[in-house]
Design a protein around this nucleic acid. Structure first.
Lengths: 188, 188
DNA sequence: TTGGATATGTCGTTTATCCAACACATTTGC
DNA sequence: GCAAATGTGTTGGATAAACGACATATCCAA
């Protein structure tokens, strides 16, 4: 709730850097983008880059996390408990996100991207679980979040591999009954 | 030529302030715009405003000068000596500029605006005269620039008062022969 | 008229950003 | 293969911008 509001300078600078990176990544592949490119585009000093990010991989992570989070948060605010609707919209968010990535050619960073997606998913699911079950068994909820995140991410991998012709919502909907029944069974 | 390049921070901040001011001046009249409004819109600290501008009138001057200068510079680079074409395009720049102002309602500041326009015109004309006549009689060129700036500005006032139905280019073209003949006569 | 609210301009301190320089790694061209 | 060029990550000192506070001015409603 009460986030200590951060210095407007850092907000500006971070946005400049991230936007410039996104801009550049529409023209070149990630491996061809240098820190100098980014700071030149953003018109900030190269040293300032390192004030905010550890290196260019750190930037990649944070940009991807944020882009993904924007999609996911939307799904969450629309329906703030884990139900069929939420599941479907989160799944669509993931597939959308991966589609936008494939346009930007981050080849060779699939593992990094996969990790980021799962991390963000886990965060989201955990938040929702806490809201839904106000238990204090934090660890159990964390594990549940891990399971859900890996599961839904795995589904997106599967979808991309075989079933791109099926609409994402139909693809995920077909499996949901089994999952949700399972969840209801164990938690009630 | 060799302008000492200025700190990117000040370029950014000045642009933020000026853009915010222009943005605000499309919604309110100048007299209703406060320094706080501007700095809030720009998301900069109020003290920073005073680091760059003496007060809000100073900002008005600089914004107007810059907007006008953009128009004028274009005219100058297109044809860098004072001839009929340059005269016409400068005249059009002035009338354009005044038209854009009348949309933004700077009522009560006509005198300020008139002064700014003449100052900028004088600057432009002086530059062009220096380039054209590489004499070292600086003072004479300054006086000539004053005459030209007042003259062309006066023409724009006259045009706005009576002849808005005539196209600016036709309006100014009708008078040019007499002026340029005069200039050629005295300088050759 | 008064008093509260809002705007102005300034100051001292803290923090973010700039800049030039450095040592080191990687790439590129010959 | 080597040299030159380019990229990386870090440092120390200089400067801009942020922030909170202040005295003062202006405005407006009670």
């Amino acid at each position: 709730m009460s986030e200590t509001k951060t210095d407007p300078r850092v907000l500006r600078t971070r946005k400049l850097i991230m936007d410039s990176f996104i801009e550049l990544s529409e023209k070149k592949e990630f491996k061809d983008i240098t820190v100098k490119d980014i700071t030149t585009e953003a018109v900030i000093n190269r040293a300032t880059f390192y004030y905010h990010f550890q290196d260019i991989y750190d930037l990649l992570e944070k940009v991807l996390s944020e882009v993904l989070l924007i999609n996911l948060d939307y799904s969450v605010y629309e329906n703030s408990e884990i139900n069929e609707e939420a599941f479907v919209s989160i799944f669509k968010a993931i597939t959308n996100f991966q589609k936008s990535l494939s346009n930007r050619c981050h080849r060779g960073y699939e593992d990094t991207i996969a990790r980021i997606i799962k991390e963000q998913l886990e965060l989201i699911f955990y938040k929702m679980l806490v809201k839904q079950h106000s238990t204090d068994d934090e660890k159990a909820l964390r594990v549940a979040a891990v399971i859900l995140s890996w599961g839904i991410y795995g589904a997106s991998v599967e979808w991309r591999r075989n079933s791109k012709t099926i609409a994402p919502e139909d693809f995920i909907k077909s499996a949901i009954p089994y999952i949700t029944n399972g969840i209801n069974f164990t938690s009630k």
